[in-house]
Simulated scan of single mutants.
Amino acid sequence: MTPATARAQAALTDLHPPADDILDDALTGLSRTPKRLPSKYFYDAQGSRLFDAITRQPEYYLTRVEQALLDDYLPAIANAIGGGAHVVEYGSGSGHKTWRLLEGLRAPVAYTPVEISRATLLASTGRLADAFPAIQMLPVCADFTRPVPLPVPSRRPQRTLVFFPGSTLGNFTHDEAVGILAAMRQVMGADGRALIGIDLQKDPALIEAAYNDAAGVTAAFTLNLLARLNREIGSDFDLAGFRHHAIYVRERSRIETFLVSQRVQDVQVAGHRFHFDRGEAMLVEYSHKYSDGGFATLAAAAGLAVADARNDPRDWFGLRLLRPA
């Protein structure tokens, strides 16, 4: 363990969901018709490693386009935010984009990543602590879709900036997304801002390819959800009995990702038996794609307004700086 990682672990606020929460969510989802499992449980240590590998696949345009856009947009963001910010990031992951943001802002005083994978959180916070020793690291291991009490920096920030890159907002339904944005509005306060990444509507073939990479990394990432459940709640999913399937549904402007049963089978979870027919599809993730106007309407429903909007030159991806309306 590096000294920075040890410091991050010492400062950690650990609100990791207990196994009972994961079990309850799995039982609830498997009892629905059609069956579904929550995508937030993709991100154990192995899931986080696989997602990092996804971002390096040639079909997965999102990360490359967003990073280039962020680089171009950073001077304007720094001007809009000013000095002494407290950066709060939801679903921080490996922290690669965070590095660029902290480097581009003017003397931020603190960084609070909220991440469900403890191992990923400590590793990324440790790396950032080494790179930015003047920024107080206040990691929180938690499910950001639920209310999360945030630590208070030792130095008073001038403004709070909520950072939510990577189009993760698109993984939620309209009502869920409004709820997350409304929670951000509370965190940022009257004078704060939020910087949000959104994947934009475009050629469906391009979108589908990003979620069905030829190397099968996304398929392995999706199936890892079942491996995690087997390990943490004692289910007996046979990973060979399911296959990954992601399709763009044009009328709902979203990718829908499923695990499809390859045969007739039963799965045991905590004494409950769930039957799967051959070809039965279990929903595991949405990935909504937005229009400029559609996202502005979504933000308005949460009491937020678009202060600045930037898209890449091909209008594949966008960054939105939001303020309280």
Rank of each mutant, 00 (worst) to 15 (best):
M1C: 08
M1A: 14
A4W: 06
T5M: 14
Q9L: 13
A11M: 08
L12H: 01
L12D: 06
L15T: 01
P17Q: 11
A19K: 15
L23T: 03
D24V: 01
T28R: 15
R36V: 01
L37E: 02
S39R: 02
K40P: 03
F42G: 00
Y43P: 03
D44F: 00
L50V: 00
I54L: 05
T55P: 06
E59S: 06
E59L: 04
Y61W: 05
Q67I: 09
L69C: 07
D71R: 14
D71Y: 06
A76L: 13
A80R: 15
G82K: 08
A85K: 06
S92A: 15
S94Y: 07
G95E: 03
L101S: 09
L101K: 11
L102H: 12
E103T: 13
P108C: 12
L122T: 01
S124W: 06
L128T: 05
L128F: 10
L128H: 11
A131C: 10
F132A: 11
I135V: 15
M137W: 10
R146I: 11
P149E: 13
V152G: 06
P153K: 09
P157S: 10
Q158G: 15
F163D: 14
F164R: 08
E176M: 15
I180Q: 12
L181G: 08
A182P: 14
G189A: 09
G192R: 03
R193W: 05
G197C: 12
L200M: 15
Q201S: 11
A205M: 12
I207Y: 10
A209T: 04
Y211I: 00
Y211M: 02
T222I: 03
L223C: 02
L225V: 04
L226H: 01
A227N: 14
E232Y: 06
I233L: 12
L239A: 13
Y248G: 02
F258T: 00
V260S: 00
A270R: 04
G271S: 08
F274I: 00
M282G: 02
L283E: 06
L283C: 00
V284A: 00
E285H: 05
Y286M: 11
H288D: 10
K289M: 12
D292H: 14
R310N: 05
N311Y: 14
D312Q: 06
F317E: 02
